[in-house]
Amino acid sequence: MELRQLRYFVAIVDHGSLSRAAKVLHIVQPALSQQLQLLEDELGASLMHRSAQGMQATDAGKIFYEHAQAILKQVHDARSAVAQSTDKPSGTVALGIPQSASGALAFPLLAALREKYPDIVFQLTEELTGHLTEQLRCGRLNFAILFDDGQLGGFNSKPLAEEDMMYITRADSRFAGKRKSISLAKALQSPLILPSLQHGVRPRIESKVRQAGLQMGEVIDITSIAILKSAIMADMGATILPVSPFLAEIERGEMRALPISGVSLSRTVVLCSSKNIPLTNAALAVQKLVLEVTHDLCASGRWLGAQSLL
């Protein structure tokens, strides 16, 4: 198996056509088709099939595509690590961030990187926590912002912040009343709009509920933060989440966030990287900047409800 075969295969999947991929790769289509056949013969599996929409990856092809992308990225990082200067780091760095943390951290980090390290190509991905873990493990990401659930032993981890979770409703919601805080038992009496179990926050909430000897009531599962916000604004229920995804709505007076009394409900935000893949100079620069930006956001109060662990 050759690196060029991986590049060819990724291009075919990305473009959905042998002819388009051949044009982009500057090779003739029969040669590209031959390399795909050699790759399939070596793997003993069909990777692509033709459909009315063009060339599409088979189930085996989808799995191989993820690995091919990760391998090509690691080769690119290795070349960049040899070539780049420590004084002026350059290259590509990929960071994954969960939907529920991106509101607080994504834009400040992006702005700081553009100002301090303009030669670094920064790829910021917003995904569910479970997807980020897999992408970090296979090497598609250099870093991921994850939440410490006691199962991060396979990664290098640096705690960034402890973020409180609060009871959040529409400002005039029938589920909030005029309270200044709410007990966990009372919060559970409302219909709760929560991310699915794939989301890093949900298991933490359910664990705290069990520890308190309580039971979850009605739960509306919504994975998308945008749709979850819409459901809250429609007063379909309340949520228990960190404040960061709702900062804009709270500042505009559209939503309210109440502390949950009698229980410590928070999550530890962690910066993770692979134990097996060395970090380039560019990645090390990004790592340092993530720590600086996080500390500044917490110290200034701009990351509401978060306390720095740095």
Results as ranks from 00 to 15, higher is better:
235 D>G: 06
218 E>C: 12
230 S>H: 14
204 R>G: 02
176 A>R: 11
219 V>T: 10
174 R>K: 15
181 S>T: 10
175 F>N: 06
192 L>F: 03
221 D>Y: 12
225 I>Q: 04
223 T>E: 13
226 A>C: 10
227 I>M: 11
213 G>V: 08
237 G>V: 07
238 A>T: 13
171 A>L: 06
193 I>P: 02
214 L>P: 08
201 V>I: 15
225 I>C: 01
215 Q>F: 12
200 G>P: 01
178 K>Y: 09
201 V>E: 03
194 L>N: 02
218 E>T: 14
181 S>G: 03
185 A>G: 03
235 D>S: 08
203 P>W: 08
229 K>Y: 06
231 A>S: 10
197 L>D: 13
229 K>T: 08
225 I>S: 00
171 A>G: 02
221 D>A: 14
228 L>F: 07
214 L>Y: 15
174 R>M: 13
214 L>C: 11
215 Q>S: 14
208 K>C: 12
194 L>D: 00
226 A>W: 14
198 Q>M: 12
238 A>K: 14
215 Q>R: 08
209 V>S: 01
176 A>I: 07
227 I>G: 05
199 H>Q: 12
190 S>T: 05
177 G>K: 01
227 I>W: 15
190 S>M: 02
204 R>T: 04
206 E>F: 11
231 A>Q: 09
178 K>E: 14
235 D>P: 03
184 L>I: 04
222 I>C: 13
179 R>P: 00
219 V>K: 01
195 P>K: 05
190 S>F: 00
233 M>P: 01
227 I>Q: 13
178 K>I: 06
185 A>I: 03
171 A>D: 00
213 G>D: 06
236 M>I: 09
178 K>M: 11
173 S>L: 01
193 I>A: 06
208 K>E: 15
201 V>R: 04
240 I>Q: 00
196 S>A: 13
235 D>M: 05
218 E>H: 15
202 R>Y: 13
173 S>P: 03
184 L>S: 02
221 D>I: 15
193 I>V: 13
190 S>I: 00
177 G>L: 04
232 I>E: 04
173 S>E: 02
202 R>N: 14
198 Q>A: 11
223 T>K: 06
230 S>P: 10
223 T>W: 05
232 I>G: 02
202 R>Q: 14
217 G>K: 06
193 I>C: 08
196 S>W: 09
211 Q>R: 07
193 I>S: 04
230 S>V: 07
191 P>S: 07
198 Q>P: 03
184 L>E: 00
238 A>R: 14
217 G>Q: 07
229 K>G: 05
220 I>N: 05
236 M>A: 12
189 Q>W: 01
229 K>V: 06
176 A>K: 09
192 L>M: 03
197 L>R: 13
212 A>N: 09
189 Q>I: 02
216 M>G: 12
191 P>R: 08
186 K>C: 01
205 I>Y: 00
